[in-house]
């Protein structure tokens, strides 16, 4: 048995009203939200699913959570078919979405977890201990017997996280789980997710906080318009998009020879160069190149008799890469890698 969530050529289309029904022609058009997606989310690892808004991330997660049926293609959880074996799949998965909903506001935190524990058939003997464990995990012991309507947004989200773990899922689908959470709580959640993965849980994560994705994900899928455009580790994706390093140098004082030396370096390497002054009115050079030219630039300046007051290198980020990959996918000639 393959311990993973796997999708093969998964598609989901939504009907879109093209024209009023009384006008000639087809009134509905099938708009693809997910278009032939093949993914593998193994157990014991956090896998990222990234893309710009409308890329199809939430639709993919909802299909994997059995909330939506694929239009075509196949998806399995530990070899169980997502459609045919939906009930068994639901025992093995859970989903946590950003925002504070998904819990009953007129029940207390403890009552919410008790109710969902019952729906998941958590054995009575274990449920009480499980609830206490989860309330401690998300830091809600003090508010366990308070009605959720009196909770803050962050508290509701933390309860929602506890709800998502009540059935000890083998796979956890996280759709923007830290949305609206304070930084310390988001950090704690990231630690929980990392621990879960270490304990063998397969996690699929979508997030707009790319630092979170870089920190947690071993493997990332990038999708645009429902199609896979790239896959790899955060480092691989960052280089895949061929974004440029930016080196910015400010001199202590202007030196004529430095001007000439830096321009020569730029011409030789093919780097883009911008000259100007910084906020303290010191001469400033900015070089952009796919390679990091910081060392070479510093040597050139010092050799030419200049004194460096400030040097800053901005490497290409995952965010740049995602935007670049998504932009590239929008071009007609784009090919999925």
């Amino acid at each position: 048995m393959m311990r993973a969530i796997a999708t093969d050529d998964l598609r989901k289309t939504y009907p879109v009203v093209e024209r009023p029904w009384w006008k000639p022609g087809k009134p509905l058009r099938a708009a693809p939200a997910v278009d032939g997606l093949s993914l593998r989310i193994p157990a014991g690892q956090v896998t990222g699913l990234l893309g710009l808004n409308g890329a199809g991330k939430t639709t993919t997660i909802r299909m994997l959570a059995t909330l939506l049926r694929p239009t075509s293609g196949r998806a399995t959880v530990d070899d169980l078919d997502l459609v045919k074996d939906a009930r068994e799949v639901r025992r093995r998965i859970n989903m946590i979405a950003g925002g504070e909903r998904m819990v009953y506001t007129r029940l207390t935190g403890r009552e919410n977890l008790w109710y969902f524990g019952q729906l998941y058939d958590v054995p009575k003997a274990q449920l009480k201990a499980r609830i206490a464990e989860l309330l401690a995990l998300v830091g809600l012991e003090h508010a366990a017997d308070q009605r959720v309507e009196r909770y803050s947004k962050g508290m509701r989200q933390r309860l929602s996280i506890a709800r998502g773990l009540i059935n000890r899922p083998a796979y956890l689908l996280l759709d923007e789980p830290t949305l609206g959470l304070d930084a310390p709580i988001a950090r704690d959640l990231r630690a929980v997710v990392a621990d879960l993965a270490r304990d063998g849980v397969g996690v699929l994560l979508t997030s707009h906080y790319l630092a979170e994705v870089e920190q947690l994900c071993a493997d990332i899928y990038v999708i645009a318009a429902g199609r896979l455009v790239a896959q790899g580790t955060p480092a691989e994706l960052t280089t895949m998009a061929e974004r440029q390093h930016t080196v910015e140098v400010s001199l202590a004082a202007a030196v004529d020879d430095v001007d000439h030396a830096v321009e020569t370096l730029a011409m030789r390497t093919g780097a883009q160069i911008t000259t100007g002054v910084d906020d303290d009115l010191r001469p400033r050079y900015t070089l952009r190149h796919s390679a990091d030219l910081a060392g070479e630039l510093a040597t050139t300046i010092v050799t030419a008799g200049g004194a460096i007051a400030r040097l800053e290198v901005t490497p290409p980020t995952l965010e740049d890469a995602i935007i670049a990959l998504a932009d590239a996918a929008r071009q007609p000639s784009a090919v999925a890698s």
Binding site: A65, T66, L67, R87, E88, R90, R91, I93, N94, M95, A97, G99, R101, M102, V103, Y104, T105, F116, L119, Y120, D121, R163, N167
Partner: peptide
């Protein structure tokens, strides 16, 4: 309307 339909449908109940 209360936002709990999805969490309800996620369960095997």
């Amino acid at each position: 309307r209360e936002g709990t339909l999805e969490s309800q449908m996620l369960t095997p109940a």
